[in-house]
């Protein structure tokens, strides 16, 4: 399935074949709260309510709404359930479980191979991290750097958030923890010029992967989005097919606004994936499913804590089965 020489692919393979128990275990623990709080609810629901009626559908609807899956997505999903129940003449609520899991999976994958690997095998690969304020971009870069370094890449972090107080140092501290290269210009510099200089430096110093931080920006701020567009443009001008990954960092606690974020950031920077952070809390991050369904942008990584190691490749199967472990 994966090319064998590629260590990243190898790790991925291990994970996929579920031999790397530790990884799967952590993922499971991270998701456990989610599972317990919401989907066990679904479990009770489908057991106690033997009768399939409008009330049941409404309650199922609420369970998904509770996971922030996005109102439109949930409505269409529940409508599908209604139709299927009618079509297949399903009488027992228990039979709904498998249908729910299967359909969710089908909708997420959407008849394509969902690749969570990061595209980091170019002479110089550039990864750009974007998102609104406070979602965890800088922390995510720290973790990704660690992950890539483990796979033998020469990584350099680029302090592109020249706006927020302390942002540059925050990233520098991460680079010291990871022990990787770090590129900065003084606070207040034009972020595009930071990217430009960083790329020149990286070319001259045999760096494999650039991880570019950007300032948090709300997607409705036209000027800031234009600034981001310029950053993107400058990177592209220097390396033709770069940025090789543009990752939207999305806080799992985010509600419906997450979809708006993805839409507008995608328009400006053509996102290649989502990093879903803070999944170690009680939030379900269901809006990421809505993002996949509406915009076809897959989740590539999930953040499960504040430590260097608390980052995993997203595995939809793991995610769904994690959510539904009690009921299937």
């Amino acid at each position: 399935m994966e090319e064998s020489g590629d260590i990243m692919g190898f790790i991925k393979k291990l994970f996929q074949s579920k031999q790397q128990k530790q990884t799967a275990q952590k993922y499971r623990i991270g998701m456990e709260k989610t599972r317990n709080s919401v989907f066990s609810q679904l479990d009770t629901l489908l057991q106690s309510n033997v009768k399939i009626d409008e009330d049941l559908f409404e309650e199922i609807e609420e369970v998904f709404i509770m996971a922030d899956m996005g109102v439109d997505v949930v409505l269409s999903f529940v409508n599908y359930l209604r139709d299927t129940v009618k079509l297949k003449n399903i009488k027992n609520a228990n039979d709904l479980r498998e249908i729910i899991v299967e359909e969710m999976f089908k909708r997420y994958v959407n008849e394509a191979i969902v690749d969570t690997n990061l595209d980091v095998d170019h002479t110089l690969s550039v990864l750009l991290f974007v998102g609104v304020n406070g979602v965890g971009k800088t922390t995510t870069i720290g973790k990704v750097a660690h992950l890539l370094k483990l796979s033998g890449k020469r990584v350099m972090m680029v302090a592109g958030d020249t706006f927020r107080a302390g942002a540059i140092n925050q990233l520098r501290i991460w680079s010291e923890r990871v022990d990787c290269a770090f590129f900065e210009k003084p606070a207040g510099s034009d972020p595009s010029s930071v990217m430009f200089d960083a790329i020149q430096y990286a070319k001259a110093h045999d760096i494999d992967v650039l991880l570019c931080d950007t300032a948090g920006r709300l997607q409705n701020k036209t000027n800031l989005m234009k600034e981001l567009e310029k950053i993107h443009r400058v990177i592209k001008r220097e390396i033709e097919d770069a940025p090789h990954e543009t990752l939207l960092v999305l806080d799992a606690t985010t509600g419906q606004n997450g979809l708006n974020q993805a839409k507008i950031f995608n328009e400006v920077t053509q996102l290649s994936g989502v990093v879903l952070t803070k999944l170690d809390g009680t939030a379900k991050g269901g809006i990421a499913l809505a993002v996949k369904e509406t915009l076809n942008i897959p989740v590539k990584l999930v953040g499960l804590g504040e430590g260097l190691e608390d980052l995993e490749y997203f595995d939809i199967e793991e995610y769904i089965y994690g959510l539904f472990a009690d009921i299937v």
Partner: peptide, 12 residues
Amino acid sequence: LDAMTGQDAVSV
């Protein structure tokens, strides 16, 4: 509290 918080706001 972040205004963009979803359903989890209650639990938080």
